[in-house]
Amino acid sequence: MSSPGSPAPATSRDRRRWAQYLVDERSEARVYRELADRREGEEREILLALADAEGRHEAHWLELLGGEPGKLPAPSVGSRLLGWMARRFGSIFVLALAQNAESRSPYDSEPFATSRMAADEKIHGEVVRGLAARGRRRLSGTFRAAVFGANDGLVSNLALVMGIGATGVGAQFVLFSGIAGLLAGALSMGAGEYVSVRSQRELLEATEPNDHADDVLAELDIDANELALVYRTRGMTEDEALAHAREIVGRAQGEEAAVVRTHERSTDHEVVGSALGAAGSSFLFFASGAIIPVLPWLFGLSGVAAIVLALALVGIALLATGATVGLLSGAPPLRRGLRQLAIGFGAAAITYVLGLVFGVSVG
């Protein structure tokens, strides 16, 4: 008889479950090692440490099984998807999926898993979250522009052609309206992005320290000068500002005068990026989304057939953009995809109904 609090004797179902855990742990360890092969430095070390931890869990299930089973089940769908993506795509997508997988560990309710293993999985989730966050920060600006630009184009132009198409006008008019909506929206997005980035760069230039005072540093009194006030306005404490000012003036009066500066150039300009580059990207991203609802009319379809095909094409694109956002943000991809779909089709439905209400007769 088992002691109080200990798991009941293992059944054949238990052993099948252990075997599944075993292959999944091996699969996850392999994913982390494949990702580590593409990284270097600290990130590589972290990924290899995660792989080693999965190896410890693997050893636990091997011990319970009494050694390597003669036949093992296939890895779970999630584990296979992670492995496939690790071999073909960037680490950010794989880590985002791994973050979800680690957060759904079955060990909390598994009587044959140790409490340490359950704790490990929670910690692994936070480690993977941190690694994924690094990747998200690296692509956040470009990704945001791409997804929101394309999504705006999809939704706005779908709503436009649905509304125009519902009025009963000819296919050529719907096509012209869609192309006009594409150009108007893309130009508006590009112009808005240009003004936004340009204004932000000008604001940074106005607030960035300059070199106007560099030439007079050597003339200052090392013990009585206002240079410390400059550094206090930049966030230093009074003591830090006084010490730094004395050091700068001392260097300026010595042999290092040629390399002394009152400021360091900010890197914010590089982070903000080019106004023209941002405008061009926004134009292209919006246009890439806005062209999709117009394709049926562009290829000669009209009426209900064109509307149905436009809805299908845009639906696929909305699901893809929503799922991508969900994947990279660590949220369920399907839920985010369906949310995007509902928003896009909701906007199209409203304009379609308005088109029916104010429709023209086809004569």
Score class of each variant (00 low, 15 high):
residue 4 P to M: 01
residue 8 A to I: 09
residue 10 A to D: 08
residue 13 R to H: 14
residue 14 D to L: 01
residue 16 R to F: 14
residue 19 A to V: 07
residue 20 Q to F: 11
residue 27 S to K: 01
residue 28 E to W: 10
residue 30 R to C: 04
residue 30 R to Q: 08
residue 35 L to P: 02
residue 38 R to E: 13
residue 41 G to Q: 02
residue 50 L to P: 04
residue 53 A to K: 08
residue 56 R to A: 14
residue 61 W to Y: 12
residue 67 G to K: 03
residue 67 G to Y: 04
residue 71 K to T: 15
residue 74 A to S: 07
residue 76 S to G: 14
residue 77 V to H: 13
residue 78 G to V: 05
residue 80 R to M: 07
residue 80 R to D: 10
residue 84 W to L: 13
residue 85 M to T: 08
residue 90 G to D: 11
residue 94 V to W: 07
residue 98 A to I: 09
residue 99 Q to K: 15
residue 101 A to W: 05
residue 102 E to I: 02
residue 103 S to F: 00
residue 104 R to E: 14
residue 105 S to A: 11
residue 106 P to I: 09
residue 112 F to P: 00
residue 113 A to H: 03
residue 114 T to H: 04
residue 120 D to Y: 03
residue 130 G to H: 10
residue 131 L to Y: 05
residue 136 R to H: 07
residue 137 R to T: 06
residue 138 R to L: 15
residue 140 S to K: 11
residue 140 S to H: 06
residue 141 G to V: 15
residue 146 A to K: 00
residue 149 G to C: 02
residue 150 A to N: 04
residue 157 N to Y: 05
residue 159 A to M: 08
residue 160 L to W: 02
residue 164 I to Q: 01
residue 166 A to E: 05
residue 170 G to L: 09
residue 177 S to E: 07
residue 181 G to E: 09
residue 182 L to K: 01
residue 182 L to Y: 06
residue 183 L to F: 14
residue 185 G to D: 00
residue 187 L to A: 14
residue 187 L to I: 14
residue 192 G to V: 10
residue 194 Y to C: 02
residue 195 V to F: 14
residue 199 S to I: 00
residue 201 R to M: 05
residue 203 L to E: 06
residue 204 L to N: 03
residue 207 T to C: 12
residue 207 T to S: 12
residue 210 N to C: 05
residue 213 A to W: 10
residue 215 D to G: 09
residue 216 V to T: 11
residue 216 V to W: 10
residue 218 A to K: 13
residue 219 E to H: 13
residue 221 D to S: 10
residue 226 E to L: 12
residue 230 V to E: 12
residue 236 M to P: 05
residue 244 H to S: 08
residue 249 V to K: 03
residue 251 R to G: 00
residue 255 E to N: 13
residue 256 E to M: 08
residue 257 A to Q: 15
residue 261 R to M: 06
residue 263 H to P: 05
residue 263 H to S: 11
residue 266 S to V: 04
residue 268 D to W: 07
residue 268 D to A: 13
residue 273 G to I: 02
residue 274 S to I: 04
residue 277 G to Y: 08
residue 288 S to F: 04
residue 292 I to N: 02
residue 294 V to C: 10
residue 299 F to R: 09
residue 302 S to H: 13
residue 302 S to G: 15
residue 303 G to D: 10
residue 305 A to Q: 06
residue 309 L to W: 00
residue 314 V to C: 11
residue 327 L to D: 06
residue 331 A to W: 09
residue 334 L to F: 14
residue 337 G to Q: 05
residue 345 F to D: 04
residue 346 G to Y: 03
residue 348 A to L: 05
residue 352 Y to K: 03
residue 352 Y to F: 15
residue 353 V to A: 15
residue 358 F to K: 03
residue 361 S to D: 11
residue 363 G to A: 14
residue 363 G to Y: 12
